[in-house]
């Protein structure tokens, strides 16, 4: 296990690469989902206003 994490002496380069890549992967999931939730909330708000006027 210790050998696995050492990556043959390249640990300092291999693990940060993976960490940063999966940071980008997770960040984009979070950004997309938040953006959709915000747009849905905003659309509901607009509909509520339209409903009051109509």
């Amino acid at each position: 296990m210790k050998e696995f994490f050492a990556m043959g002496g390249y640990a300092w380069f291999v693990w940060p690469s993976y960490l940063l890549t999966f940071l980008a992967v997770i960040a984009n999931i979070v950004i997309a989902r938040r953006s959709l939730a915000a747009a849905q909330a905003e659309a509901r708000r607009r509909l509520a206003i339209a409903g009051e006027e109509g």
Binding site: L36, A39, A43
Partner: peptide
């Protein structure tokens, strides 16, 4: 997958027609 989620958000933000917004939500 991420593009489709963002595209839905973008479509909602652009859409002004109340009737389909109601339907979509």
């Amino acid at each position: 997958a991420v593009l489709l989620v963002r595209l839905r958000a973008e479509i909602l933000r652009r859409e002004r027609s109340a009737s389909w917004l109601r339907e979509a939500l």
